[in-house]
Design a protein around this nucleic acid. Structure first.
Lengths: 161, 161
DNA sequence: CAAGACTTGTGGACGTGTCAACCAGTTGGA
DNA sequence: TCCAACTGGTTGACACGTCCACAAGTCTTG
């Protein structure tokens, strides 16, 4: 726990300082960058990131204000909106990614041997699997309780690789 | 990273739901409970928790409003204030601790063998040590740069044991 | 002692996160 | 067909965090 708290705080600060992007902004950009045509429905993104739709909605609004994203009407569902990565957004992301990866490498990977990294990965997966096993708890996009519609699809997309 | 994010979020939510205390509140109470006579100077607490003084100041104010803490004038330094754990604060903490420890046990310790736990602990310490080695970065109570006044004293007090 | 430097703690502005309420569009039946 | 239930997304209220500025007390030094 100590490790993780210090680690995340430090990475977030370094990212902000060196690239101007906050950690949440970076995470969103990671996922938008991977999306086909750099466009995605809000809910699709929320599922992929395991974020609450409310949280994502607000984050998106702020990032639109900053020029990183744009919102478009969805042609097939009048309620929905499609989020698009702007050129400015992509530029900011590319630069931030370069910086961030070097921070990660410096702080983490240099500290452990390959073997140790593998061991750590296995331990982490063990616990994650255990958490999934216990009450599904339906991590984020709740407010429906379909009987375990599709519990363990893809893991959430953290912005760390 | 995935492990930690999911883990912390889940624990925080369970704590809030079952005890009514937020994670930051709980952390503060952990430290106040350990303090001699349940009283501490603000800055002393900030150092122990590795929190920014501003963050702590605001958290304390909220917790005073909720009746968990009280503020007293410091007899030896007119600027300072001493924080005291109220009876209500102690009661809330005792109850929350009971609940929280069972959550931790269920989520984490049940998932790994003793040997695995030891291994994980060693890996975490390795990385923490590495982080400390790299730029001290002076984790939280910055805004003075005394030449490494007392770098690695006690580790920060996380509320997890 | 007086001036400047430093310390302790608070407050404002703003970004981030959760919960719950809400609107509008969509859908599945009677 | 038409209404009730559901879904996609936004918003408001509030808690939490960070950065920066500041007031007021304390220390240092000429």
């Amino acid at each position: 726990m100590t490790l993780n708290a210090a680690f995340l705080r430090r990475l977030a600060r370094e990212l902000q300082r060196d690239s101007g992007l906050s950690a949440p902004e970076y995470e969103v950009l990671v996922n938008m960058d991977k999306a086909p045509e750099n466009r995605m429905r809000v809910l699709e993104l929320a599922l992929k990131m395991q974020w609450e739709k409310s949280r994502l909605s607000k984050q998106i609004s702020r990032m639109i204000d900053r020029g990183y994203l744009a919102r478009e009407a969805c042609p097939t569902d009048q309620r929905g909106s499609v989020i698009v990565l702007t050129d400015a957004g992509r530029d900011a992301f590319v630069e931030a990614e370069r910086i961030h990866l070097s921070h990660v490498r410096e702080l983490f990977f240099d500290a452990l041997s390959t073997e140790q990294l593998n061991t750590l990965g296995e331990l982490a997966e063990t616990v994650v699997a255990h958490i999934d096993t216990l009450a599904p708890e339906d991590v984020s996009c709740r407010e429906h309780q379909g009987p375990t519609t599709s519990a363990s699809d893809a893991p959430p997309q953290e912005g760390c690789a």
